[in-house]
């Protein structure tokens, strides 16, 4: 076992405000899966076998065996795994054989979970997309306060915001500033 201690980008931030809670969660692992050219059939088969589902459609995140799968760009998916496993990319690579290329992405992102009965009061001041109209299971990459963000709608009260690790502090500053402005 490694004698190096892992650290979370925001050192495990938690924030509680009346009506809102924001928690930096432990992500598990995040692996990107790129479909090899002309290997869609084999890929879909392997995907079904590995995750028990067909791959998600654009703007979609679905629950799969072991976590979630999210469409991230054309021919590319983000797999969010519940359990830590730093070999996840290699293991997935072996399951998909020649049909996909994997890249470990867990450390590139910071993940914040927003829970609230009225999340849109915050989100309409932060995220440019129409999240009220979005379906449950909506996932998209956009910008908030000029910083990249993946926004995921798990339910009408639970959202996840993922943002690049290096700028996570600035992102959190922006988000908490918004929350405080809304509460005021």
């Amino acid at each position: 076992m490694s004698n190096l201690e892992p650290t979370l980008p925001l050192e495990g931030f938690t924030g509680d405000w009346p009506d809102f809670s924001l928690v930096e969660n432990f992500l598990g692992e995040l692996v990107s899966l790129a479909v090899a050219q002309d290997e869609e059939i084999a890929f879909n088969k392997a995907f079904k076998k590995t995750f028990g589902k067909t791959p998600p459609k654009p703007s979609e995140i679905i629950a799969v065996k072991g976590g979630y799968a999210m469409w991230s760009s054309i021919g590319q998916y983000f797999i969010l795994l519940d359990e830590p496993n730093i070999e996840a990319d290699r293991e997935l690579a072996s399951k998909f054989g020649n049909s996909a290329y994997t890249t470990l992405q867990s450390d590139g992102w910071t993940s914040l979970d927003l829970k609230s009965k009225k999340p849109y009061d915050i989100l309409e001041r932060f995220i440019p997309l129409d999240l009220r109209a979005a379906q449950i299971g909506f996932a998209a990459r956009t910008m908030a306060h000029h910083i990249a963000v993946v926004i995921i709608k798990f339910s009408e009260t639970e959202f996840r915001l993922m943002t690049p690790r290096s700028s996570a502090k600035s992102f959190l500053d922006g988000l908490t500033h918004t929350i405080e402005n809304v509460i005021a």
């Binding site: 990107s32 790129a34 090899a36 050219q37 002309d38 021919g75 590319q76 290329y101 890249t103 470990l104 992405q105 867990s106 450390d107 590139g108 992102w109 690049p164 690790r165 290096s166």
Partner: peptide, 15 residues
């Protein structure tokens, strides 16, 4: 567009 090549940034992934 017909090459089998895939790109992803890993700048933040690796220290």
């Amino acid at each position: 567009p017909n090459m089998d090549v895939h790109l992803i940034s890993t700048t933040d992934q690796w220290a």
